[in-house]
Simulated assay, not measured.
Amino acid sequence: MRVEIWSDIACPWCYIGKARFEKGLAAFAHREEIEVVHRSFELDPGRAKGDIAPVLDLLAKKYGRTLEEARAMEAHVASNAHSEGLDYRTEGRDGGNTFDIHRLLHLAKERGRQNELLDLAYRANFAEERSVFDAETLVRLAVEAGLDEAEARAVLADGTAYADAVRADEREAAELGANGVPFFVLDRRYGISGGQPAEVFTQALEQAWQGRTVLQPVGGGDAAAPACDADGTCEV
């Protein structure tokens, strides 16, 4: 059975949601028979490639808050991350365009290293002092994930490489009704929005395994579970 996950590296609830999904998957009896595919979703596709700014400044501007209020928002997200055993820096992170990261993730998918690169990119963005909006950092992450350095550099140098694949993922998300991320689709039958608790993912996997045929929201979760929506707004 296939599980598809639409997400963006810039989305903190995608980082947290991935950890929760993996815990839910670990509790599922047929976990060895699940194929997980990560798909592209840009929270801010109109942002210029070189437009990089501190996350706290971006949050303050977006929500009309002071920097201290933005720090409190980040602290709340960090608390959720820490509860899942994830490191999360509330200071010193950058925000920017994620299109190149998504293109590189499609290369990694072809090479069987997608999950490895995604984990490294999340860690670099949210837990380490490494900007994922820098080409050299992305190359190093690709190599750490097991990709060929020259091939990764070639993809980043060619702005058209895997661009169609990224756009196709985004169109498909819209067709499925995903207006925010993380968004999970189980066997093209069930949809789950937001960073739900691990047990909700386990229940959803069990339901999908039974072979029901209609794509519908899975019950038992919080309909208002935190997520980042299509215009880049992240719940805090």
Score class of each variant (00 low, 15 high):
Leu56Trp: 05
Leu58Glu: 08
Leu58Thr: 10
Leu58Lys: 08
Lys61Cys: 06
Lys62Val: 06
Lys62Pro: 03
Gly64Ile: 04
Gly64His: 05
Gly64Ser: 08
Arg65Ile: 12
Leu67Met: 13
Glu68Gln: 14
Glu68Leu: 14
Glu69Lys: 11
Ala70Gly: 09
Ala70Pro: 05
Arg71Thr: 08
Ala72Ile: 12
Ala72Cys: 06
Ala72Gly: 09
Val77Thr: 10
Ala78Cys: 08
Ala78Asn: 02
Ser79Lys: 15
Ser79Arg: 15
Asn80Leu: 15
Ala81Tyr: 00
His82Met: 13
Ser83Arg: 15
Ser83Trp: 03
Glu84Thr: 08
Gly85Asn: 03
Leu86Arg: 06
Leu86Asn: 07
Asp87His: 15
Asp87Thr: 10
Tyr88Phe: 15
Arg89Gln: 13
Arg93Thr: 14
Asp94Ser: 15
Gly95Thr: 15
Gly95Arg: 02
Gly96His: 00
Gly96Lys: 00
Asn97Lys: 04
Asp100Gln: 12
Asp100His: 05
Arg103Met: 06
Leu107Asp: 01
Ala108Val: 07
Ala108Gly: 08
Arg111Thr: 07
Gly112Trp: 05
Gly112His: 03
Arg113Asn: 05
Gln114Pro: 05
Gln114Asn: 10
Gln114Phe: 06
Gln114Asp: 11
Asn115His: 14
Asp119Phe: 09
Leu120Arg: 10
Ala124Ile: 05
Asn125Met: 12
Asn125Trp: 06
Phe126Leu: 09
Ala127Pro: 02
Glu129Thr: 13
Arg130His: 09
Ser131Lys: 08
Val132Gly: 00
Val132Thr: 12
Val132His: 00
Val132Ala: 04
Val132Arg: 00
Phe133Asp: 01
Phe133Ala: 01
Ala135Gln: 14
Thr137Cys: 11
Val139Cys: 09
Arg140Gln: 14
Leu141Asp: 00
Leu141Trp: 01
Ala142Leu: 02
Val143Ser: 03
Glu144Ile: 06
Gly146Ala: 10
Asp148Ala: 12
Ala150Asn: 10
Val155Asp: 00
Val155Leu: 09
Ala157Asn: 13
Ala157Lys: 11
Thr160Ile: 03
Thr160Glu: 11
Ala161Val: 07
Tyr162Thr: 03
Tyr162Val: 04
Ala163Asp: 03
Asp164Phe: 06
Ala165Phe: 07
Arg167Phe: 04
